[in-house]
Nucleic acid binder design. Structure first.
Lengths: 252, 252
DNA sequence: CGACTAGTTGAGGCCAGTCAATGTTGGTGG
DNA sequence: CCACCAACATTGACTGGCCTCAACTAGTCG
């Protein structure tokens, strides 16, 4: 079911013997945490491991950081998942991200020295702080690390732009299809099933993320289920036809 | 009319005597180009100036780089303006950015080594290439430059998130109000009038940027004009009531 | 068990999209 | 210089997809 065969990545498995970094490797955090440490010299890896400091344990609903709070560190999710939300001045709230194991969040705080959004745990979650000043300092000693940091900041921009495309020009069914395919891929990268998973967000939150109302989310789920595309039971989802989903996601 | 009183910024004016960088200072590029060079040592500034290499002259409609093209450099707009667009696999196109003098674009290419979007000149435009490898190398010798690069990458993320908020939860009037206020602010930062400017995009492009159809853009403009908020004449806009516009932008 | 939150489903309305006709602008060549 | 054309913009009438409001159901947790 859970194909862990690919983990830990052979090139890295031996180089770090202890510390949180190893854990990230073992748990197949294919995304940002691996991106950050990709290709690093053994020495830098060890130091990076040391930078990963205090890890917070969060209960469902706890906030990791608030919008406007002084920025000091990035956070790597070690377990669980988070949403990030931005707030309009009028109080309206929008989910801007759904983050899982291995993701690094808080990147938007670097520019302004304050967190631009709020991060809230969607389930019991542990997150490691990566004090940015120390990361920056370490990056001065490692060309690769420096490059990796640029890269994952940049990738975030790319992802946000894809999201803008979704929000600006897709309709309800396409949006949900894209969302589900994105989750599918990310779960797979982490070694979980790509067709069977549990949503950690409410319909309301999914709707906010995708720019639609909760009722619409619910209706689209039902419609997808009716035509045999998937099966939903509250928050557990089974995808039956990834290819059809892809068609829906990319149509018009 | 054009208040150039603030330019060049006193602290920087004397430190670079020639080269493109000085030009950016003089023309009040308050945004990214200044951000990039903020607080740099005289020596680094000189070297940065040297990194700014070939400048391309683009005619209206020319593309500076295409989506998918290998990424080698960032581009600083020295004159004129550009739009950036992403393309869905189905061919649908969405404007993701509107960039003017001083803006640095192409940031989303760093992560994937390929440009994620396409940049097209909206008028006759000149842009300077900043070969990223050289920039990166220079950043190794200057803590401040390194920090500045992180910062403006990060700010871009913040801006994209604001855009997601707009696309995900605002309606037509709010969107256009936000758009106009954003332009107003940016023109002001550059020393131009904050209430009177010429749009360099068609209704179609504005619509694409804001996630609405060109007819809707046109109608909202007309409505705003009817109530005396502004005056539109094709692409020239005069704003009469910034405060009301702000109200509209932040309501619900 | 009752109170609460999350989710589903239906009915109706509205905002923005679609389609279409007309007006305006700007660039080109005679 | 003006006529012409193409691209851009405006406006109207109609449509439709999503939102709103509301009722009902299904879990969850003291």
């Amino acid at each position: 079911m859970v194909s862990l065969a690919l983990y830990p990545p052979p090139a890295l498995a031996g180089s770090v013997t202890a510390g949180p970094l190893r854990e990230f490797m073992l748990h197949g955090s294919d995304r940002t945490m691996r991106e950050l440490s990709a290709g690093l010299e053994a020495d830098t890896l060890r130091q990076l491991d040391a930078v990963i400091s205090t890890s917070s344990r969060l209960k469902k609903g706890d906030t990791l950081y608030q919008a406007g709070a002084p920025f000091t560190a990035l956070y790597a999710i070690r377990q669980g998942s988070c949403k990030t939300t931005v707030l309009g001045e009028d109080g309206r709230e929008q989910v801007t991200g759904y983050h899982m194991v291995g993701d690094i969040i808080g990147l938007d705080g670097i520019g302004t020295e304050r967190h631009g959004c709020e991060a809230v745990a969607l389930e019991d979650t542990t997150a490691c702080a990566l004090p940015f000043a120390r990361l920056e300092k370490l990056a001065r000693t490692s060309v690769t690390l420096q490059h990796n940091i640029y890269q994952f900041l940049s990738r975030d921009i790319g992802r946000d732009q894809d999201m803008m495309l979704l929000l600006g020009s897709m309709q309800a069914e396409e949006r949900l299809a894209v969302f589900l395919l994105n989750l599918s891929e990310r779960y797979q990268q982490r070694g979980y099933s790509s067709t069977e998973f549990v949503l950690r967000m409410t319909r309301q939150e999914i709707g906010s993320y995708l720019g639609m109302k909760l009722e619409t989310v619910s209706r689209v789920f039902s419609r997808f289920q009716e035509v045999g595309l998937l099966q939903v039971q509250g928050r557990s989802v089974k995808l039956f036809a990834l290819s059809t989903l892809k068609q829906i996601a990319g149509r018009r």
